[in-house]
Design a protein around this nucleic acid. Structure first.
Lengths: 133, 133
DNA sequence: CTGACTGCAAACGTTTTGCACGGTA
DNA sequence: TACCGTGCAAAACGTTTGCAGTCAG
């Protein structure tokens, strides 16, 4: 069990029970949208309000502890900031999988060709997963 | 000047003046969000309502004439369906540029490694453009 | 002529805000 | 203790819907 209290403080956020429940759920699910997060946190913290979820997600994003992933035809999902990675998302079942792909040579050639400094890559492949055909 | 009437009919949409103004603006801008589109179309068609913009954007997306591009920290932009491409977006000035990159080898290895059939790639690189440093 | 489209206003779902209270550091 | 966070309710936003009138084909 990770020490989420320490993590929150490292990101300049007070370690309230609500925040601990939120960050624990996000980490356990890998990616989670607002509604599922709300349901999940309510299981362990029935008094929490949706406004608190929103406020905390937003402050965690501002403080770079979480990031938002925009996905086609779905609500955004939130995940902890870890190593850079891309996403595979199944159009039928909605499952999202993290994948490691090497985009560094592509990014390098873009920097050159377009004289553009890249500091973030959002890469989402949609299609059908193994189960869903 | 393209014949947008013909294009609309090819996509099974009646060629109303409102639609012609919408598709012409989207095509001229390359990518445009709802608010800018509304302002733009109003210039030539002052009586148009925002609801009409929404209804038409949605039907054009359903009929595969337009597609939605979700971008970080901004509203989605809409563009005509053309060849597959990726996007470069400047965090300072918000400019969006189409770029051609070859993702086919990446997609191929993903198909193999994850046994996943890809039918859409959403690739957005964020950073700073030439002007904005 | 008929079904589809428009514009308005109302409804809806989602996210943010203001404020009084409570809890962390 | 001081400030930040919480929860509630209300407000603000963005988008969709219903409907009566209009128009494209």
């Amino acid at each position: 069990m990770k020490n989420y209290t320490t993590i929150l403080r490292e990101y300049n956020l007070k370690a309230t029970p609500q925040r601990l429940a939120i960050i624990e759920s996000v980490d356990r699910f890998g990616h989670i949208n607002i509604d599922n997060l709300y349901e999940e946190v309510k299981n362990k913290f029935s008094s929490i309000s949706l406004a608190t979820i929103y406020k905390n997600i937003n402050s965690m994003i501002s403080n770079m502890l979480l990031l938002e992933v925009k996905v086609p035809n779905q609500k955004s999902v939130y995940e902890m900031v870890k190593e850079q990675h891309s996403h595979l998302i199944c159009d039928s079942c909605g499952a999202i999988v993290d994948i490691k792909i090497n985009t560094s040579n592509i990014e390098e050639s873009i920097s050159k060709d377009y004289n553009f400094i890249i500091n973030k890559s959002d890469v989402v492949f949609s299609g059908n997963c193994e189960k869903c055909r």
